[in-house]
Design a protein around this nucleic acid. Structure first.
Lengths: 187, 187
DNA sequence: GGAAGTATTTAACATATGATAAATAATCAC
DNA sequence: GTGATTATTTATCATATGTTAAATACTTCC
């Protein structure tokens, strides 16, 4: 759990008491490569923190497996569109490598916000950062070409190719695997 | 300012005191159709609420004017990637119609969060909703075809065609105006 | 109300990406 | 280690969207 609190400190330090209460609603969970952390159709009630390994959020569109996002060490993961609306998610979370996550019970977390203002602020800052990321991603999907998106991804995640299969990267970029292969072939 | 507090009540009701303090950092501002509310290059320090009219956020990519988003009555508008990072924005906010906005000073707002926990919670919920919207938009840009995106937009914003020029809608959808014209001509 | 400017459509051609299928290459399981 | 499975590339052809340019249609403003 150390890694989580380390990360929190870097975002917005919280009181010892808040830390203690937060620790009580966290638990460590492990997943083998390729297994689902949360299945499709499940209402998201957990916020995860990646301690080791990496995960993706994915869903199916017309029987095609689409990767919505990746997360690596020290990142938070949740299916926002379910967590914040209470509706079941059409998306799943899957371990791409053998992965260790810290699971935070979101209902309990939201209750803690009443007692610990600083915890809510921390969480607000986490959401703000996630929001900024999605806004930037929209910009990239809206008018960058597929190969601009590919090379930008490599720039931001230097070693993503060593950890994530290309088929996941292709759908993440909004293209087919064949198309990605062409781009890589320097086409 | 009534409309703003009406809207707030629907999201997360706040105390009278918080309302009063919030009102003190709000001011009403008007813009003629076509004018910039905030220019490119400016660091975003204001959160707007649309009282009347509509606005868009736009930027230039290779000298092409790209509309990132629209907002209509009772919505909040800000350039998140600048507001939450403190960096200057490459984007501008522009009035699409004659528009009346309520401007909220963001620095003062963030200070008020220390005194009014409920105000911060309200704001958190507003960001959460905005975040969910962008996540859904990514999904749509990632793998929907241009005409799926167009018809979904019409479904969600029934009268957008009466209020927003097609050239803005085209770039919002991630396509050229010519391409949108073809889709409308029933392909 | 007419001229000037702006928005939208249409046409013709170019290009990036999709779809399908087959060939390699890499990984996994026993 | 070997066969089976999975991932990636390559090839071919189809199609959606981009680009440029010109034709209409619509607004705006004096």
């Amino acid at each position: 759990m150390e890694a989580l609190f380390q990360q929190i400190k870097a975002i917005y330090p919280i009181s010892k008491e808040a830390e203690k209460s937060l620790a009580e609603i966290c638990s460590e969970v492990s997943f083998k490569k390729g297994t689902d952390v949360q299945p499709i159709g499940h209402t998201c009630k957990t916020i995860y923190f990646v301690k080791k390994g990496c995960v993706r959020i994915y869903y199916f569109k017309d029987a095609n497996d689409i990767t919505e996002s990746f997360e690596f060490e020290n990142a938070f993961v949740a299916r926002a569109e379910s967590l914040f609306t209470g509706k079941p998610s059409r998306k799943a979370i899957q371990a791409i490598e053998d992965t260790v996550l810290i699971a935070i019970d979101s209902n309990k977390l939201f209750k803690l916000f009443d007692s610990y203002h600083d915890l809510e602020r921390l969480f607000r800052k986490i959401i703000e950062a996630a929001y900024v990321n999605t806004v930037n991603r929209i910009e990239s999907l809206q008018f960058n070409t597929a190969d601009e998106r590919y090379f930008n991804l490599l720039k931001d995640h230097t070693n993503i190719l060593k950890r994530v299969p290309l088929k996941f990267i292709a759908s993440y970029l909004g293209i087919t695997q064949v198309s990605l292969s062409r781009i890589r072939a320097h086409k």
